[in-house]
Write a protein that binds this DNA or RNA. Structure first.
Lengths: 198, 198
DNA sequence: ATGAAAATGGACCCGCAAGTACAGAAAAAA
DNA sequence: TTTTTTCTGTACTTGCGGGTCCATTTTCAT
């Protein structure tokens, strides 16, 4: 079915593709480049991804989706105090600032995402999962009475995800993280303000 | 130089390309499709856009950038009362909801924008212009004492643009406008709340 | 009217990158 | 060992689509 060596090769291919895509975008990434970078040939590539490029791209998207959440841990899972929120904010900003123009997930969402149902499902899941964790954080803060009861956790979490996504999109096209920071800070201010009157 | 007939043809080509891109995305749009839709041939296309696809795409981006702002008028230019803000919000949500998956500017920003400097400049301008108008609205509201003096107009405007952008991106990949609405509403709540304590 | 410039039609070229075929090497199973 | 399956290298095919050419028609200036 799949030997250890085979699995390793498969993995190498995915990671090479991911790297290539980060650097040059989906459309500019040629299968040949992927092969070269992973020290494989087309025969391997099509052996492990019989449906070709599309299938490979989806695997890459899966990999990147996992990373997006991972990279925010452990902060994202522990949003139970203002300092935790702040740290999380900083991690997110820093992560995307470092990545600059080359946000892998953004690239995939925008260049691949819309048109294929599988990719669409994947991004849907990612958004949902991300949002759920933010929501949990908000609810925890409500439990502490640090966030006001008038705040709708689900809706606010949705807004925060949108804010981040938009900030990243603008970062990708302008190179500046200002919008991302402003958007995140506004959301945090909103949460903090809601608790003031308690 | 350019006769009336020529200008009309040129325009037809741009609009055909814009339509094609809205429906299928940049990469899936072939020059031949554009020709067919505009009832022209490649010779015309290359006559009016000697640098080929890239140049055409840029022209399309310019067209769409203009529309983005236009479609929000007159509301965007008159953000001087809460009802105006609300109307603006509704127009934005409605516009993008109607467009669904097919946000032309989003497509261009994300699929074309990053890689070519000209397109990057264009999107930069668009963001800036858009943001400036929102900022003017916030400043007007501060003049009325309807928005608190603690609000930084430029930064808040930046956050709102990011929120919209993110909401639209998510709308493009999931088909749901929930995030866009939540993000906009959060921003408006933030503004309103800042005025409460005055 | 007439010559120049602009506009158009349609056939053609050509390079590139996705995908294929097949044979040989390595590994696993027997 | 042998037999079978998985793995890998190489050389090839092929279709698509961006871009070119040139002949012809239309429009415009004078």
């Amino acid at each position: 079915m799949l030997t250890a060596k085979g699995a390793a090769t498969r993995q190498r291919i995915i990671e090479a593709a991911a790297a290539e895509i980060r650097e040059r975008g989906v459309t500019a990434t040629k299968l040949e480049d992927v092969c070269q970078r992973s020290a494989t040939g087309k025969s391997q590539l099509f052996h492990y991804f019989p449906e070709g490029k599309e299938q490979l791209l989806l695997a890459v998207a899966q990999l990147e989706a996992g990373r997006v959440i991972e990279d925010q841990q452990p902060h994202l899972g522990q949003l139970t105090s203002w300092t935790a929120w702040q740290r999380w904010r900083d991690v997110v900003v820093e992560r995307y600032r470092r990545q600059g123009v080359h946000c892998p997930m953004g690239v995939l969402i925008t260049e691949l995402g819309r048109h294929t149902p599988a990719a669409q499902a994947l991004t849907g899941q990612l958004v949902e999962q991300w949002q759920r964790q933010v929501q949990a954080g908000i609810e925890a803060m409500q439990g502490n009475n640090q966030v006001g009861p008038g705040v709708d956790p689900a809706r606010t979490a949705a807004a925060m995800i949108a804010a981040i996504q938009g900030g990243v999109t603008i970062l990708m096209s302008t190179g500046s993280a200002d919008h991302l920071e402003a958007a995140l800070d506004l959301c945090l201010d909103y949460l903090r303000a809601s608790g003031q009157s308690t």
